[in-house]
Amino acid sequence: MSCYQTLQDYAFRAFGYGERLLPRSDFTLCEQFTLIGSGLLWNIYFGVIAVTTGFVLANFLALGKNSKSAWARKPAEWFIFLFRGSPLFIQFFFAYFLFLSLKSVSSIFNPLSSAWAGALIVLFLNTAAYSAEILYGALRSIPKGDIEAADAYGLSGWTRFRRIEWPTMMRLAWPAYTNEAIFLFHATTLVFFSGFPAWQQKGDALYYANYFADKTFNPFVPYPILAFYFILLTLVIIAVFGRVNTWLNRHLPQSKRPKLKFKPNLIR
């Protein structure tokens, strides 16, 4: 089988398009690159949606934690503590069995036991908690001079937050938030190893890398391929977030614009 034919058969197999059966023997390098790359589409799906939706919730959580009202502050603090204080793997595990229980109550909950919905909810809540703590720290770090200047111009309430506090909070938090986004994409590899089943072998990049490692008894080919794909994905994320960072700091002199630095988390 040519590499072109392999691409036709397996390029979108992770989403159910193409050849139904996986190769069983005589694995070629092209097959491994194609199938692992196909599985990476799931990682991109989980990461993009979780980051974008989690960012919105994180803003509300950060404001809640910074609120003077205990009714807003305490729920935000406990939410952040719960999802930052427990391992993501355990969150996947318990969420899956919770969703299975809900599935037995009503068929409306059936999608939650599938990775595309259930695991996505866990990633959304997890990254919202971590991002909220980053945004909260940035919110508390806004220079007092900015607030005093806003007061001097008569800005208050929503207008002050929208025009002064929120843009400054974004500028301060963005480098750290970029690292959170990168780590979330890496964390998507836990989905199919934490309880949520891969239906009809439609798994992510790590699922297929593990498949080839088990079949060939040689992990030194599929896992470097997996690492290669995630390095490329990380470079794309850094480029996209770097453009946003440049836009957020467009009013500053070039020498004073903060640079993005990738600092991986060793423990989540």
Score class of each variant (00 low, 15 high):
33 F>T: 05
194 S>Q: 07
210 N>S: 09
146 D>Q: 14
22 L>K: 12
59 N>Q: 12
38 S>R: 13
84 R>N: 12
75 P>H: 03
113 S>P: 03
35 L>S: 09
71 W>P: 01
48 V>C: 11
16 G>W: 03
217 F>P: 07
152 A>G: 11
24 R>N: 10
94 F>C: 04
14 A>L: 12
94 F>H: 02
42 W>Q: 04
50 A>L: 06
264 P>E: 08
50 A>F: 10
201 Q>E: 03
94 F>T: 11
195 G>E: 02
155 L>E: 12
61 L>I: 06
5 Q>A: 11
250 R>E: 10
158 W>R: 10
230 F>L: 13
198 A>C: 00
10 Y>W: 15
197 P>G: 04
113 S>L: 09
144 K>D: 08
153 Y>L: 15
177 Y>D: 04
144 K>Q: 11
96 Y>K: 09
24 R>T: 15
167 P>R: 03
113 S>D: 07
67 S>F: 05
109 F>G: 15
107 S>V: 02
120 L>P: 10
76 A>L: 01
254 Q>W: 05
232 L>I: 15
27 F>P: 14
260 L>C: 02
133 E>I: 04
94 F>Y: 14
50 A>H: 02
23 P>F: 01
214 D>A: 12
67 S>V: 06
3 C>V: 05
198 A>H: 00
14 A>Q: 12
173 A>G: 08
44 I>L: 14
216 T>G: 09
183 F>C: 06
195 G>I: 05
268 R>G: 10
172 L>W: 10
54 G>W: 11
177 Y>M: 06
191 V>R: 14
153 Y>E: 08
14 A>K: 12
213 A>F: 00
72 A>V: 04
207 Y>R: 04
167 P>V: 08
56 V>G: 07
178 T>A: 02
12 F>Q: 08
20 R>T: 07
88 L>S: 11
227 A>H: 07
11 A>T: 11
242 G>K: 00
257 R>Y: 06
90 I>L: 11
5 Q>L: 15
213 A>V: 00
136 Y>W: 11
183 F>D: 05
63 L>I: 06
114 S>V: 09
106 S>N: 08
165 E>F: 01
216 T>E: 13
14 A>R: 12
105 V>S: 15
250 R>K: 14
178 T>F: 00
95 A>K: 02
107 S>W: 04
121 I>D: 08
161 F>I: 08
223 Y>S: 01
179 N>L: 08
236 V>W: 10
132 A>E: 00
147 I>S: 06
66 N>Y: 06
201 Q>T: 00
71 W>S: 10
173 A>Y: 05
76 A>K: 01
84 R>F: 03
230 F>V: 10
146 D>W: 03
69 S>I: 07
159 T>M: 05
118 G>T: 14
13 R>T: 06
